[in-house]
Design a protein around this nucleic acid. Sequence first.
DNA 1: CTGATGACCGGAATGGTATTCTGGTCATCA
DNA 2: TGATGACCAGAATACCATTCCGGTCATCAG
Lengths: 238, 238
Amino acid sequence: MTESQPGQIDRADRILDAAKELLLRWGYRRVTIDEIARHAGVGKGTVYLHWRSREQLFFAVGAREAVAMLTAVVAAMRQDPKEIALHRYMRRFFLEAMSRPVLRAIFTRDGDVLDRFLSSPARRPLQSSKLLASREYLGVLADNGLLRADLRPADLDYTLPAVVFGFFGIDPFLADEVELSLPDKADQLADTLRHAFEPAKPPSSARFAAAAPPVIAVFDGHTDDYRRAAYGASTDQR
Amino acid sequence: MTESQPGQIDRADRILDAAKELLLRWGYRRVTIDEIARHAGVGKGTVYLHWRSREQLFFAVGAREAVAMLTAVVAAMRQDPKEIALHRYMRRFFLEAMSRPVLRAIFTRDGDVLDRFLSSPARRPLQSSKLLASREYLGVLADNGLLRADLRPADLDYTLPAVVFGFFGIDPFLADEVELSLPDKADQLADTLRHAFEPAKPPSSARFAAAAPPVIAVFDGHTDDYRRAAYGASTDQR
DNA sequence: CTGATGACCGGAATGGTATTCTGGTCATCA
DNA sequence: TGATGACCAGAATACCATTCCGGTCATCAG
């Protein structure tokens, strides 16, 4: 067994650092495993002791970014239970994702950076819809009256990703129109989600306090999933 | 001057019919002007008597579809003034666009059909955002209390296209998840827009009656713009 | 004995060139 | 006078020779 030794994690991180830097500098297609290994100060074979393919390695780069993002999200939720509200969560999600170059490339489907990677077989980048809208999370919200009562939860499976996807992807098609700042866009997204999916009258603080622990548990679980995906050859990853 | 003779319009339509059929059968790249002319029973040079380039010709194919769609939309608005409501309009827009193969290809950015055409220089396919969210239309709605009062109209320039774009584009990224029917998707879009952008309490019928004529005028104007873009070499088209 | 390495292999990507194809023009024709 | 299709230049394609690179594994260092 290779993992669980601190040195191994360090080495994985060094390799991921190198891969991330080269990815952002040159794009997915141009980066070679040789170059990554050289930058990380390891042999090429060593890379394959951690991930079983080039694709897995770059997936791990994204997964590690997801861990960082989710960690920030969960920290905010611990700080203030109201942060679990759908519109607050997605606002932060949007800002965090757009602020991290690797995640921004993934969510905006930036072909210059990820060209080939995007068309990988069935490999939905970071399984974005799962990351984006966990049913468990939405279930907890619904159970605590934090979603519109007349909303069938199953509808959100389709509608929430549709709306959020739109905010991530619309930019290239607006061009010279009004150019909003990133926070302004996030506010627009939050405003839209709040009106579209949340109760008209804001729920009491008690609601948020009750729902926060299970919500945080769900996100902690997700974070661990991505952490596992980021490191370690032995782990499943299918 | 060539246009305004019925025969010329007929011929233009025959050419557009041929172009449309071949476009859907073979995709933008594979269709040649020769083939279109042959199918339409005219000489190749004749095509250039109507449009000044291949790109303009295919743009005209889309414009003619837009005319058909807008005609249906306006007819519905004349029938029932309530149809001018943003959510009703976009519901119909979505259904109409998705039901017409050429427009669906444009709005879903279907690369198999439109491959090269999509990356045409600055040539935003059918200037979709203008088609989608005319400021004039939204202005009339706002003036008649048919939009949320606390909404700055300029915000809709960004937010409305973002949301709608999401519904047009999300499908490929949901895959095996819940597969909704087209009308169900349209209903989800309508529901989202109604809650996000319209007043909580439905406006009176009188509001709709007052706003309908100017709204219809706006759409009639748009329809004419697209009709002009579809036919005629002499017209500007920039 | 264990974990790290890099030379090596096969298939895929790339570059260069000869050939075909096609958008657009315009002299000719009905 | 409006329609046509032969014609041309440049772009797309097909082909092949060469390079490149992901992944393996025999070998080595500690």
